[in-house]
Design a protein around this nucleic acid. Structure first.
Lengths: 336, 336
DNA sequence: TTGTAGGCGTTATCAT
DNA sequence: ATGATAACGCCTACAA
């Protein structure tokens, strides 16, 4: 037992004692604040180094009243979409000296509210992705967790920073693309009905129908994952449509994979289009036509607006992020 | 201005005053500790509700000396592997009342050490994924951040909890699989040379060569992403090998996609095998033969061992997680 | 320039 | 069963 490692972490008082100064002076040196006589400062630094002193974040948090931490609550950490948001926020926040605390509600809408409020208590702010939370709960959360920012969920309250992907615009691009190829009978393979972004897509479908009165769009409800696309193939084929607009790329890729098993030619017999432009979209067979939505940017944009609000600056109103069509192999002219 | 919202969050003192008791009693009621007279308790709860009082996590952290937070530091939040680990740890830790603080070092080996130490300071423990950190730095981190757990990186120190995927075993399965099909000339498309898990794979390659002396395995170095597989196609074709063992599924899928463009038949002309069994492996064309490694389980296992160590329980030694071969369409007999 | 003292919001140890 | 009172470790007027 030669190395008697100090059991207790050194505190500011230990450093002060060793450097023969007051704790206040140590604090000043550690924070590089007001001018401390160089000799003293050096003594303090040496003492701190000797004791391998690190200020307690916990104590600073209490004293300063800020944690420099932001909570990010998402419904499913397994979804590439939310992973991208988490990544975007984490990196953007890091540049401003903030860390991210993650909350995964595991698709339980009921747990979302509690998770959000709980997570917010340990942080200075909250980024909330709650696509399926009902409006009542959301209103409660809004009141209890400010400052917070909303992702892909727009509310009337102009005071809360909000950033959303314009899925309506994306759907519009897709429909126009397919209409341009000559398709007249489409299928929309929708996601969870309760989700805000699905409602956006539906509205865009309505608008597109008005724009192209000759278009017929059958609508179905499925999930948001690979399996959901896979299991929808029979449904789609049953309609006799020549093209399908999938809820997202996962659904589209799942469908594609099933169609291949069924030996349905894509796009010869059926065109398939997704939304999101996830990395795999460029590597599937056929490569997937989709709309690229800037997900990394979304996270960064959310953080920027939230940080803005945390500084008490005036709100900027909702930000809608627009996508761009990526025309690839999975869409083409309809069979005739 | 009818609703005069309280500017300052209510503290325990406010509740105590309103309920006409001491702060100690409020604390007891809030924590459901020792027995408090029901009448008093009720008064306290009412006061707390009136003031919508929520104990300050920050103050509790300082007083209790614990934050109930664990840091998870990964090299790249964009990698499905680390996403799975993050998800696994987050969910497992949540069940024990712990939250997760994420750190993304963005593939900068230099930043890993500082990020780890910094993150650890705000948390009770650390989960570190640092595949490429050199041994010196790692040793420093080990000393400065205990309790911590290591992922996919095994060190001699039996005191630190460590869980790793047995990539050596996975590679062994794959080689035996290909050898069984009759392949005699393989290519290994390796990942970042400095990474610990790549070294594991290399060692397994050596072992396999001893096991099957007739086998020739050409080794190349590439990255760990889709693009890296894509751009390695020419290299692979140049060797005349009949099968390729990719560093992971991303590399394998990238390669597959390029081979399709080059109209190279898989597995007719070339068999391709990956490692990880990411979701897309079952949806590619052809579906990808790979080794499924229990990534979600990995995260949970890491947390269990770390939590164990945090309670001061004796260490359990490294845990090696084994994979299972998923034979799919992308592998078959060699061309003859 | 440096030190003293009080506060941040809780919990925990004692008395009572 | 309840209430003073002292930590917890740091920051920051204010005073010297």
């Amino acid at each position: 037992m030669s190395s008697t490692t100090p059991q207790r972490r050194a505190t500011i008082a230990d450093v002060a004692a060793r450097a023969e100064v007051s704790r206040a002076t140590v604090s000043r040196v550690m924070n590089g604040l007001s001018t401390v006589e160089p000799g003293i400062a050096e003594r303090v630094r040496a003492a701190a180094a000797d004791l391998s002193y690190r200020p307690s974040e916990t104590a600073r948090n209490l004293s300063l009243g800020r944690t420099h931490t932001v909570a990010v609550v998402v419904p499913d950490l397994g979804n590439p979409m939310f992973q991208a948001i988490l990544r975007g926020v984490t990196r953007a926040a890091a540049e401003d000296g903030y860390r991210v605390l993650v909350g995964d509600t595991q698709e339980s809408a009921a747990a979302e509210m509690d998770a959000a409020i709980e997570a917010r208590r340990r942080c200075d702010a909250l980024v909330l992705c709650a696509p399926r939370m009902d409006d009542d709960r959301l209103a409660q959360v809004l009141g209890a967790t400010a400052p917070l920012a909303l992702v892909n969920r727009v509310v009337a309250d102009e005071d809360v920073p909000q950033v959303a992907m314009d899925y309506g615009q994306a759907i519009g691009l897709i429909i126009d693309h397919l209409e341009g190829w000559g398709h007249r009978h489409l299928v929309y393979l929708g996601g969870p009905t309760a989700s805000a972004s699905n409602r956006l897509r539906i509205a865009a479908l309505d608008a597109a129908t008005r724009r192209h009165p000759e278009l017929r769009i059958d609508r179905f409800t499925t999930g948001a994952g690979l399996e959901d696309g896979w299991s929808s193939a029979d449904l789609v084929m049953g309609t006799g449509a020549t093209a399908v607009v999938a809820y997202n790329d996962l659904v589209a890729l799942g469908l594609l994979s099933r169609l291949r098993e069924l030996e349905v030619a894509v796009p010869g017999r059926l065109s398939v289009v997704g939304v999101d432009d996830i990395p795999y979209a460029r590597f599937s067979d056929p490569t997937l036509t989709t709309v690229s939505v800037p997900q990394d940017e979304l996270g960064a944009a959310v953080w920027r607006r939230l940080h803005h609000a945390m500084d008490g600056l005036p709100p900027e109103g909702p930000l809608w992020l627009e996508g761009a069509l990526q025309a690839r192999e999975s869409s083409g002219p309809p069979a005739r």
